[in-house]
């Protein structure tokens, strides 16, 4: 059966690919070294030499945004990847064990949910020091809890379906049923959730870097660029505009991608528009 790809999937994938391409390009080339300081040429508006102008230390904003994309995507990918590795097996385990095992995983999730992700990250960076690694750990913890809950819910639904009963009747063990029947059937839902979480992770990373707790200079980050721009709002308002646009486009792209994927994978949701 061939289904039409939803528009949001096109747009989302397009935007995301653009950002990924920009991030990858920054590995090979940026207009200027992103960390190169030239105080004498600071706070310049966009010119032919500096397409997006320069920041308060005279660094090239375009180069910083390119490298910032790489940093944001790397933190997001790590936070979601670790979340998947930790959360999905836990969710599957909960569904397979049932009863107290299920209960234990659910309560563990509640414990994590009791604190918003950003607050957990602030607590963690306060205890262990600011930096990208601690931000990744905090966000991954939150993502794992979300993904475990999603995976568990979806897996429970699969466990109730007749073909699972049939597989069990044929003598398949719970591990085999989980890997062969449950995992493939929940993969779509998990991927959709992971994409949304990717967007959330990028916003959270930006928030933490804005507070000075995330990615540390000299490596540029969109959130820190916003934070630095704050005191220049009256004199050089463009400072805040470009990193702001970058964050907005990135999050929009990933959210639309997740939305589109969900619609594509599950036609029942096509017109609902809610998560």
């Amino acid at each position: 059966m061939k289904r039409r790809l939803p528009l949001s999937l096109h747009l989302g994938a397009g935007l995301t690919l653009l950002l990924v391409a920009m991030a990858l390009l920054s590995l090979l080339w940026t207009p200027y070294p992103a960390e190169q300081v030239r105080v004498i040429a600071r706070l310049k508006p966009p010119t032919a030499a500096h397409w997006l102008g320069t920041d308060h230390f005279g660094r090239d904003v375009l180069s910083m945004i390119m490298v910032g994309a790489r940093n944001s995507l790397a933190v997001g990918a790590a936070a979601v990847g670790l979340g998947l590795l930790g959360g999905v097996p836990l969710g599957l385990l909960a569904a397979a064990l049932g009863r107290w095992g299920d209960e234990a995983v659910a309560r563990l999730g509640d414990l994590v949910f009791a604190f918003p992700a950003v607050l957990t990250a602030i607590l963690l960076t306060a205890a262990l020091g600011a930096g990208a690694i601690n931000v990744v750990v905090a966000l991954a913890l939150f993502n794992a809890a979300v993904l475990a809950r999603v995976a568990r819910g979806a897996a429970l639904a699969v466990w109730r379906r007749p073909f699972v009963g049939a597989a069990l009747a044929l003598g398949r063990g719970p591990l085999s049923v989980t890997l062969v029947h449950v995992l493939p059937n929940i993969a779509g839902i998990v991927v959709v959730q992971a994409t949304i979480l990717f967007a959330v992770a990028i916003v959270n990373e930006a928030a933490l870097s804005y507070l000075g707790l995330g990615i540390q200079p000299p490596s540029p980050s969109w959130g820190k660029m916003l934070g630095d721009a704050q005191t220049h709002l009256f004199t050089a308002p463009l400072q805040a505009v470009f990193p702001g646009i970058a964050i907005a486009l990135c999050v929009m792209g990933l959210t639309m991608l997740g939305d589109g994927l969900r619609d594509w994978l599950d036609p029942r949701h096509r017109s609902s528009g809610i998560l």
Binding site: E35, Q36, V37, V39, F57, G129, A130, G131, G212, L213, Q216, P217, P218
Partner: peptide
Amino acid sequence: ELVAAMLAEVGIRAKIEP
């Protein structure tokens, strides 16, 4: 941040710890 950038120019890689 500026001092770290200047030190980096001569090869001293200073990790910033706020």
